[in-house]
């Protein structure tokens, strides 16, 4: 079985949100609490020795998705042909009645809108675009070409099999389908004393 997955180059991401907006446009997700892809940053160090690690969060279409087995309605399924995890929103009981998938997923992939008894929605790997030979909307949107998507074995062959990075823990129990180019702390070219001016008040 093919397993689709993502590649994220943490060194190239600028957290510009273009993937987020492109995803919302493609999937018609209104502004609000639901976003099928999110970006964030982790800040470390003190001025001027600062480093920023960006991270992209979406559904990693796990090899053993915790959400699928937890859904009492059987609304979440993993596609046989490509391992994409999809939800049938018609079958979902809504967030007022159930949040088992949200609680089960360590990566916050199940998302709920602001509407009353919102049904779960999540990244579906843009399988409609896939069928047209396109990559997911987020990948085609990325200004820095930091994202890629495809069969995870191909991505591993091309980019290496690095499964963890700053801001991401690989869960053995669910096997998320993503590999990384991790960002290391920056090197220093020239001697610089760490000078922090006294606070002004």
């Amino acid at each position: 079985m093919t397993q689709m997955g993502f590649y994220f180059d943490q060194t190239a991401c600028i957290n510009c949100y273009t993937c987020v907006v492109a995803c919302k446009d493609w999937h018609d997700v209104p502004a609000g609490p639901a976003s099928l892809i999110r970006v964030s940053t982790i800040e470390k160090g003190k001025c001027p020795e600062v480093s920023i690690h960006p991270m992209v969060n979406l559904c990693y279409h796990c090899g053993k998705p915790a959400c699928v087995s937890t859904c009492p309605m059987g609304a979440i399924t993993k596609r046989e042909e490509d391992g994409i995890v999809v939800v049938d929103r018609e079958m979902c009981q809504g967030k007022d009645n159930c949040s088992l998938c949200k609680d089960a997923c360590p990566y916050d992939a199940p998302q709920f809108g602001a509407e009353e008894n919102a049904k779960m929605q999540k990244c579906d790997f843009c399988f409609d675009r896939l069928a047209e030979g396109k990559k997911p909307a987020c990948v085609d949107a990325c200004l820095m070409r930091a994202l890629d998507a495809g069969p995870i074995e191909d991505l591993r062959a091309k980019n290496g099999d690095i499964r963890e990075t700053e801001g991401f823990v690989y869960g053995d129990e669910c096997m998320p389908s993503i590999v990384f180019k991790p960002k290391k702390d920056t090197k220093r070219l020239i001697v610089q004393k760490v000078v922090v001016a006294p606070p002004t008040s």
Partner: peptide, 8 residues
């Protein structure tokens, strides 16, 4: 963040 080896 993307490019710099150092921030002054």
């Amino acid at each position: 963040q993307l490019l710099a080896d150092q921030w002054i």
